[in-house]
């Protein structure tokens, strides 16, 4: 069972109160982009064993979207953060580096 704290209303929401929104921080490539970029935006997703960043919506609660960072192996939740950002906050990245040294996710990796 996954319990995420909604950063907007502060509720510790249990999984059934939330709706998953897929991978976080996708960059949209629309009309005018080349085929490879469009394919990547539309179809290619991370499927990591370990650290993952996702979008969630507190659909039965305040209705707001937010981001979550968790481990797909242990279900450990590293933290949740606002949806109004294009990259995770630095303190969260630091926390993940502490717990999962050497982690990588797309172009995010542990600061050298």
């Amino acid at each position: 069972m996954l319990t995420l704290q909604c950063p907007h209303c502060g509720v510790h929401a249990e999984e059934t109160e939330l709706t998953g929104g897929g991978e976080a921080h996708l960059k949209r490539f629309g009309p005018g982009s080349d085929d490879d970029a469009f394919e990547g935006y539309l179809f290619l997703r991370e499927n990591p064993k370990g650290v993952h960043f996702e979008r969630w919506r507190h659909s039965y609660g305040c209705g707001k979207w937010f981001h979550a960072a968790r481990c797909t192996v242990t279900m450990e939740v590293f933290g949740t953060y606002t949806a109004q950002t294009s990259k995770p906050p630095q303190d969260l990245l630091d926390r993940i580096s502490e717990k999962r040294p050497g982690w990588r996710w797309r172009d995010l990796n542990e600061p050298a």
Partner: peptide, 10 residues
């Protein structure tokens, strides 16, 4: 009478 906080903007 009551006011309920429903979400950050509601």
């Amino acid at each position: 009478r009551a006011i309920l906080w429903m979400s950050p903007d509601e």
